Simulated assay, not measured.
Amino acid sequence: MNFEQTTTSIKESKPLEFGSIFSRSIELFKKVWLQGFLTLMLTFILILPFYFLVYGPILAAGISDPEMIGREEMSPALTRAMVVLVPLFIAGVMTVSVALNSAFLRICMLKDTNSTKPDDYFYFFKDGRWKDSLKLGLIVLGLSLLGAALCGIGIFYFIVPISLMSAFYAFNENLSATEITKASFQLGNKNWLTIFGLIIVMGLVAELGVILCFVGILFTAMLGKIPIYFIYKDAMKNK
Rank of each mutant, 00 (worst) to 15 (best):
N2Y: 05
F3V: 13
Q5K: 15
T6C: 12
T6P: 10
K11D: 15
K11Q: 13
E12W: 09
K14C: 01
K14L: 07
F18A: 01
S23H: 11
R24C: 06
I26S: 10
E27V: 14
L28Q: 10
W33K: 12
L40G: 10
I45M: 15
L46N: 05
I47V: 11
P49F: 11
F50D: 02
Y51Q: 15
F52A: 15
F52M: 12
L53G: 09
V54E: 02
P57Y: 06
I58T: 00
L59T: 13
A60T: 15
G62S: 01
I63K: 07
S64R: 09
P66N: 03
M68T: 11
I69E: 09
E72I: 01
E73A: 07
A81G: 07
M82D: 00
M82I: 09
V83A: 13
V83P: 01
V84G: 03
L85I: 12
V86G: 08
V86Q: 08
P87Y: 06
L88Q: 07
I90M: 03
A91F: 05
S97L: 13
V98G: 00
A99T: 00
L100N: 04
N101L: 12
S102H: 07
L105I: 12
R106D: 13
C108V: 15
D112Y: 04
D112T: 11
S115T: 11
T116L: 14
D120E: 13
D120T: 11
D120C: 07
F124V: 02
K126P: 14
W130R: 05
K131V: 09
K131S: 15
S133A: 10
K135L: 10
L136M: 13
L136T: 10
I139P: 08
L141G: 03
S144L: 09
A149M: 04
A149Y: 04
C151H: 06
C151M: 14
G152T: 03
I153A: 03
G154V: 00
I155R: 05
F156C: 02
Y157I: 08
Y157D: 00
I159K: 11
I159P: 08
V160E: 00
V160Y: 00
I162F: 03
S163H: 10
L164V: 04
L164Y: 06
M165F: 07
S166E: 08
S166A: 15
A167Q: 12
F168A: 07
F168M: 03
F168S: 00
Y169N: 02
N172V: 07
N172T: 08
N174Y: 06
N174M: 03
N174L: 04
L175I: 05
A177T: 00
T178W: 12
E179D: 09
I180Y: 01
T181L: 06
K182G: 02
A183P: 00
F185I: 02
N191P: 11
T194Y: 12
G197Q: 04
L198A: 05
L198H: 03
L208E: 12
G209L: 02
G209T: 06
I211Q: 13
V215W: 09
I217P: 15
F219E: 12
T220N: 03
M222N: 11
L223D: 08
G224K: 05
K225Q: 15
I226T: 04
I226A: 08
P227T: 02
Y229K: 02
I231T: 05
K233W: 15
K233P: 14
K233T: 12
D234F: 14
N238I: 02
